[in-house]
Design a protein around this nucleic acid. Structure first.
Lengths: 257, 257
DNA sequence: TGCCGGCTTTGATCAGGATCAATGCCGGAT
DNA sequence: ATCCGGCATTGATCCTGATCAAAGCCGGCA
């Protein structure tokens, strides 16, 4: 991605497309990995050029529009995905409609790894999103040939596990305000890890998605944002942008009450 | 383990020991893996005999008593552990003492895997527990020589991730009653997976530990148990044993309200 | 320019679970 | 047999965040 920091702004060529239930594979380039902007962020960084081109040959690029579903919890886990650009939410839902978002993914993140043969969560594009897709069988073959790839995936899985544990602490024991503060600090980390300017932070998700991620309601999320604004800890230049004015006070709020 | 189903009953030889802050390594047997009762449950099952004896040579057996700490969140991650017998809780704590248990582990489960150099959670024995401990450097060497081991670990990590996602849904969106019902059904699975009789279930943890796992208070846990008993869905022959009388109704409670 | 629909904010009220407090139960030690 | 300490249960009250309801804001479009 060039310096387009507003993750919400649609990519022009995609925006013109009619909305479809399922995305179509993009036409193949001679070597898509050559120009991949997420390459340094992702597991591909662990591979030699040769290995990478072999991997690239198996990949298919795909685009997804906001709210398009990559896969649903319980679907046969046919593919694995690597996000090259955009944002995706992972979620689980209950029969009565209650939803819990288990994580937000961005460029370089890996999706759909699964021992069992069905996905354990649903994945949905938050904004226009481009992914690199592999069939699971091809990917498995790749794995058995490249121990460094498997090694890297294990590291990724362990990091995700630590993130999930942090999320479990947040949901089980933190107050609404602590959750919001932790969330904002997390977004700062996410954005700086990608080398983007940290302030103001662009939120690729709506209040409803934040609420479903933090185990709260839309109203509570909104009220906490307002309260932080009145405390002069943040400002909200737009509803999807947050300017953090006092990081230290935000940190203090994320740890106690 | 023979047919001693009460996980809370202390092992005789251990109970005689004075309480120590840190457990001492047990004297080495010629080949401890030969007699390991958890062998079929754990990652060792993926290894050939030769590989296993090589792995066994690097392992040290250790015992821990109830409340003994294997390691603390933030400690240098020097070792990895494999539980052969007993139960361990993983938890994270906040500075003011609030605690969240992120999971309970039992025989065959693996502990302490970590990309970074510090543990992301604390581990504490719930009951008398025996583990097989490896230094991380030795274990890493082992890993690079045995792709099948790494493959197996990846599968384990993915299963743990799916479990964590389930826990995130529970903490973010389920009511107190739904959490308790889900918890009890989870315990049934845990116990039957180990081939033990499912009814009544022995709970190796106290109400406080259940509460810290489910993001509730002791009182709420107790009230839910009482309510389930009054609904004739369970009975409580002892405070650490639950007899499930109507699994179908319990399942219904775990999904809606 | 003004309408419309989706998202966000704000207000009023409600309720599920937390907190505070007391009692009960059981096992181990004397 | 009795006491004691830790854990569990039960009851009364409180409070955080959910729910219900109504504006407000903003961008797209006629």
């Amino acid at each position: 991605m060039p310096d387009d920091h507003d993750e919400r702004r649609p990519m022009a060529e995609i925006h013109a497309l009619p909305i479809r239930k399922h995305a179509a594979p993009a036409q193949k380039h001679p070597d898509p990995c050559e120009t991949c902007t997420a390459r340094s962020l992702t597991i591909c960084a662990a591979l030699t050029n040769e290995e990478q081109s072999r991997m690239g040959a198996l990949a298919g690029a795909m685009w997804f529009q906001p709210h398009q579903v990559l896969f649903q919890e319980g679907d046969a886990a046919d593919h694995v995905y690597n996000i090259t650009c955009g944002s995706v939410s992972l979620s689980k839902s209950m029969s009565d409609g209650r939803r819990q978002i288990t994580g937000f993914l961005g460029p370089g993140d890996f999706l759909g790894l699964n021992t069992r043969d069905t996905y354990s969560v649903s994945a949905e594009a938050l904004i226009d999103t481009k992914v690199c897709r592999f069939s699971r069988s091809a990917f498995r073959k790749l794995l058995s040939d490249m121990p460094s790839l498997e090694h890297r995936l294990l590291a990724v899985a362990e990091t995700e596990l630590a993130t999930a544990q942090e999320q479990i602490l947040l949901l089980g024991r933190k107050t609404a305000m602590e959750r919001i503060a932790s969330f904002l600090l997390l977004q700062v980390n996410r954005v700086t890890a990608r080398g983007l300017p940290p302030n103001p932070i662009a939120l690729p998700m709506t209040r409803a998605e934040v609420a479903d991620y933090l185990g709260l309601t839309i109203e509570t999320v909104s009220r906490c944002f307002t309260k932080l604004r009145k405390l002069d800890i943040i400002s909200l230049p737009a509803s999807d942008r947050v300017l953090i004015k006092q990081t230290d006070r935000l940190k203090a709020l994320s740890e106690s009450t």
